[in-house]
């Protein structure tokens, strides 16, 4: 192994190196969560605008696959190194305390692996549902008046199913929960924290988490309450 290769591999094997990867992929994934939410909120602009946005994304061609590939890689690295660190951390204390009290650690921070695993399961289900149309295929084949895939009607019809919107709302809560610790945490790991920034990042993390929750959940709620109306002719 050359010196340079050794230097790079030892970053991946050091504790801080692994943490840096989790934090850096966390930045990418948080960016996606916010961007995806802003894109989705265009559903409130009506069928035409929303389907235009959807067909724009589908029309990106190779670029779409580059972005998807990067996101997939970020997800894989984030999960792989989180699990690796969690296993090492568990080994660092083989004999537990008989009595253990927490003074600082938030409940969200202590349940990151649970929230993470459930959110991951949701992502798989979510892609099978809205991207691939493999689950709930009955909502997938609508065509809008301009002959495009009617994503707008698919979303509204899907969310009128209480089981689908229920799963979605619970998952979004766990995503927000994960972000409420993850956001400020990734700044700390990347070394972008000091006494002055710390309370700001904490508040920003909480705000971001609940903004993400509110943004995503507004869609099934609007579909449910009839604020989002189906275009005429979709239902027989």
């Amino acid at each position: 192994m050359t010196d340079k290769v050794q230097r790079i591999t030892s970053v991946f094997s050091s504790s801080i190196g692994k943490k840096l990867i989790v934090a850096f992929t966390g930045v990418i994934l948080t960016g996606f969560v916010v961007g995806h939410m802003l894109g989705n909120l265009q559903v409130f602009l009506g069928q035409d605008k929303f389907n235009t946005y959807a067909s724009f994304l589908q029309g990106l061609g190779e670029l779409l696959y580059v972005v998807r590939g990067m996101l997939l890689l970020a997800v894989i690295l984030h999960i792989y190194f989180s699990i690796k660190l969690a296993l090492e951390n568990r080994e660092a204390r083989p004999i537990p305390y008989a009595v253990k009290k927490y003074r600082e650690a938030s409940y969200a921070s202590r349940t990151m692996h649970y929230s993470g695993i459930i959110v991951f399961a949701f992502i798989v289900y979510h892609i099978l549902h809205f991207t691939l149309g493999k689950v709930h295929p009955q909502y997938y084949h609508y065509i809008d008046p301009k002959g495009r895939h009617d994503v707008y009607s698919m979303v509204i019809l899907s969310f009128r199913n209480p089981l689908i919107s229920g799963t979605y709302i619970v998952s979004m809560f766990l995503l927000a929960w994960h972000l409420s610790h993850g956001f400020s945490s990734l700044f700390q790991t990347l070394g972008l924290n000091n006494a002055r920034l710390r309370p700001v990042l904490g508040t920003l993390g909480t705000l971001l988490a609940w903004a993400v929750f509110a943004g995503y959940v507004s869609i099934p709620l609007a579909a449910w309450t009839g604020i989002l109306k189906l275009p005429p002719g979709v239902l027989p």
Partner: peptide
């Protein structure tokens, strides 16, 4: 790392 300490999960205990 060699002493097998764990790593920080930013909980500030």
């Amino acid at each position: 790392d060699a002493e097998s300490f764990g790593s920080c999960t930013n909980q500030y205990e």
